[in-house]
Design a binder for these strands. Structure first.
Lengths: 139, 139
DNA sequence: CAAATAGTCTACTAAATCAATAGAATAAGT
DNA sequence: ACTTATTCTATTGATTTAGTAGACTATTTG
């Protein structure tokens, strides 16, 4: 399951994605409308900015807005950022690989091979779908 | 990611799946060979027994052995048992459904619709693959 | 039946992660 | 300067995960 933080990130992105382009939106507005605790949301938006997905303007008339094109914000990127690996086991993770403690030989581990297949299938979906797909399905 | 408990469950199942049919194996043997803490493993095996996947014999010459046919032990079943929902959000979970706090109308939520698609794709894989597939890929 | 073997159950504890909050610092506009 | 708004640091509480301890129950074998 996705953490609340990850879910909040998607809600915030969706809200910002629906706005007029390059128009700064207040954190507090996003917080209210998406029902995400404001302080918590702050750090989420900041992370999204550091990732180059959003950007912000400080001071009066400031706020956050989308920098990337919605179709370039893939689900996989957001999930990895806030939720960690897509893979179900560290030993089959592309971005967060770690060897198993108990497994002496990965090549002979059936679980490893199966989970690799699962990861590939999952990745096919989440690396293709993007914020644009979410927006398209909003009423 | 899968919890250690879930991973341990798969390792234990794999070990038991490789044994002679209906031959009881000691918890301590499984613990040693799979490098799972024995006491932790006990509760895992017990859960698998309650689920009808394994069964056990008490007393001397006792132990655990596989009850179900390996191809009937689907990844999805084991994951649900130890790790919880397959879905990424409660509002799209088949077995653990819960409505979102923040979302007033599921039908108009783009995130919901996308995550439903992701769940369906994931399910296609984990509901089809089974312990048999893991065993086939062990050397 | 008694002794040894081996699974079952209840309860607890430590560590890690997640969720949320508070408040000071910094930057920009008027 | 003053106000608005983001940025940064840091701490806290709650929950989940991982692992441990020990008493209890059931079965086999001599």
């Amino acid at each position: 399951m996705l953490s609340k933080k990850t879910k909040y990130a998607f809600h915030a992105l969706t809200y910002l994605g629906k706005q007029e382009k390059r128009k700064p939106i207040l954190i507090s507005e996003v917080a209210e409308k998406t029902k995400v605790p404001k302080k918590f949301l702050e750090s989420i938006l900041l992370d999204l900015k550091k990732a180059g997905i959003l950007t912000s303007k400080m001071g009066k008339g400031g706020g956050y807005y989308l920098l990337k094109d919605p179709e370039d914000v893939k689900l996989a990127e957001v999930i990895r950022m806030f939720n960690g690996p897509i893979a179900l086991l560290p030993c089959v993770s592309l971005n967060y690989y770690e060897p198993c403690d108990e497994c002496t030989d990965e090549a002979s581990c059936g679980l490893n091979k199966i989970m690799l297949e699962v990861r590939d299938e999952t990745l096919k979906v989440v690396a293709k779908k993007s914020l644009k797909d979410i927006l398209n399905r909003e009423e």
